[in-house]
Design a protein around this nucleic acid. Structure first.
Ligand SMILES: [Mn+2]
Ligand SMILES: [Mn+2]
Ligand SMILES: [Zn+2]
Ligand SMILES: [Zn+2]
Lengths: 146, 146
DNA sequence: GTGATAATTAGAACTATTCCAAGAAAAGGG
DNA sequence: CCCTTTTCTTGGAATAGTTCTAATTATCAC
């Protein structure tokens, strides 16, 4: 299983500061919600969860905060086809598996060297700033809960 | 470079029939447009190109036809983040490189075995029906035209 | 040909996301 | 501490890509 890197509150504020952004209660709570349940929620799902703690937050703020967290590299935005963007606080390089039947999204660890091997297929002159590996399919019932 | 598999008109009609779909002038012309310029156009771009040949075609028909071609596996839909879907008639398994600067999208050949190697990283119980490898970045000026 | 089925069309509707303008909060200098 | 500037949040409007709807047209099977 992937090691769970948890940032101290100070490190969280520092990561924001490094990108010239301020820490705010909204950003903190949204980040903690992503850490608490790592099921790759959509913005709407984050909105529903955050309202329990910040009942007056707006959906625009949820989008703004998620964008801020993505921009300072605390969170990854994950897309499948044209479905709503999902958000992932796992900072290790990893692939994603989207179970179309269950609608769930799972992290897939990358064995050492695979990413380099994939990058190596690029012809000369191609400079990739990001590489995404994503799967769609089904998970066996017992695998879904692993 | 990838071998260009060109379907005969009969094979095209057959591929549609195999999925229980009819051949139509709109579907033929849209498919020929994808083959003619393999730059991964969006639906809007296909619409602009097809109007030269079928001036009265509607955008809805372009979407309908592209969906039909995707459903009968003559065309692949390609997505980068939340940008408009692009369409690719290259039936060989391949990865995609999206040049953010140029806005262009390029096919990347996969060396034999890589896809199997990538599939092998899935834990037991994960059954992938599709695997996507996609890059974002820049291409050197001379690489862009290769 | 006739009736059934499928495809095209224009425009309305939808949905995820972004934009906007106003107010609230925080920072920094004196 | 005020004051000024900048950043952030907010609700609502706007946007954009795509899908839906209902009417028309084309094709198929007999
Ligand atoms: Mn799904
Ligand atoms: Mn782009
Ligand atoms: Zn993830
Ligand atoms: Zn392609």
């Amino acid at each position: 299983m992937p090691a769970t890197v948890t940032l101290s509150p100070d490190n969280f504020a520092q990561a924001l500061a490094d990108s010239g952004l301020r820490n705010t209660p909204q950003r903190e709570v949204i980040y903690s919600i992503l850490l608490k349940k790592r099921d790759h929620p959509t913005a709407d799902e984050v909105y529903a969860r955050v309202k329990a703690e910040l009942p007056t937050i707006s959906l625009a703020t949820v989008y703004n905060c998620l964008e801020a967290l993505v921009n300072c590299n605390l969170v990854r935005a994950v897309n499948f086809e044209r479905e709503p963007t999902r958000y992932c606080p796992n900072l290790h390089p990893h692939a994603h598996f989207h179970d179309e039947t269950a609608g769930s999204t799972h992290d897939i660890d990358l064995p050492p060297g695979l990413l380099e091997q994939v990058r190596a297929i690029l012809p000369p002159g191609y400079d990739a700033s990001s590489i995404e590996i994503s799967f769609r399919g089904r998970t066996a019932p017992e695998a879904a809960t692993r």
